[in-house]
């Protein structure tokens, strides 16, 4: 039994089902990556895990407890954190305020956590009095991830964190993920850049039309000729 265990998720946005019984799990200190073609339901699966989607069937368990019926806010209380794909920072607020808002639920001293975020993303320390809206795309993603880390989550979920950033910034972001994993956090990520993402993944899920098509370690998937041909461009 994994730390996060989403089983047999089925549902959509009111119309036809987008998820057709997909299952995803991830353990602490692991990175799980969901890849797949456009429209495969990657983002929808993330939303389903975070409770932003009405599920028809399926269950989500975190650390052995069933959380299927909980609202997203309650999941935040349970130690889940989510970084949306777009509008994931408070553009009118400074970097520091963004981080403070991330820690909104915490009543204890957050200075230590903020220090760790600054250590992870040193550029944010210099820009901490700047409005997040004035930062570059890559820096914004750092703020977004930093905001999510401020709750000291046990599970960090990222929806396509590298969408629209340069390859250099992408490599840098993935390196940070590895660092975050070292702290014992479970990371679940949906990604467009499948090849690079599977490169850092402990587990990879290839989703097609809302179903699990292939599931294996990242390295194994990268080596699988079928997966390479169909999803990684040869």
């Amino acid at each position: 039994m994994s730390f996060l265990e989403a089983r047999n998720l089925t549902g959509g946005y009111g119309g036809a089902d987008i998820l057709n019984g997909c299952s995803i799990s991830v353990d602490r200190g692991e990175i799980a990556v969901i890849v797949g073609p456009n429209g495969a339901g990657k983002s929808t699966a993330m939303k389903a895990v975070f409770g932003m989607l009405q599920l028809r069937t399926g269950s989500v368990r975190l650390a052995g407890t069933d959380i299927t019926g909980l609202s997203p806010q309650d999941r935040v209380h349970r130690g889940m954190a989510f970084v949306p794909q777009t509008s994931n920072v408070f553009v009118t607020m400074t970097v520091q305020e963004n981080l403070e808002m991330g820690a909104f639920l915490r009543r204890d001293d957050i200075a230590g956590t903020m220090e760790r975020v600054f250590a992870l993303f040193p550029v944010l320390r210099d820009k901490r009095q700047q409005p997040a809206g004035e930062l570059s795309g890559g820096q914004r993603q750092q703020v977004a991830i930093g905001r999510a880390l401020m709750t000291e989550p046990v599970l960090l979920m990222l929806d396509e964190p590298t969408a629209g950033v340069s390859p250099m910034v992408m490599d840098d972001l993935f390196e940070r993920m590895i660092e975050i994993r070292r702290e014992g956090i479970a990371i679940l990520m949906a990604e467009q850049n499948a090849r690079q993402a599977l490169g850092i993944a402990d587990t990879g899920y290839v989703l097609v039309t809302g179903e699990n098509r292939y599931t294996d370690t990242g390295a194994a998937l990268l080596a699988d000729p079928d997966v390479r041909r169909a999803f990684l461009g040869g």
Binding site: S87, V89, T92, E97, R147
Partner: peptide
Amino acid sequence: KSMRAYSDNEDLALLSG
């Protein structure tokens, strides 16, 4: 600050609790 955050980005404010 939480009011400003809510005014800036409602969804993200909800995600921050």
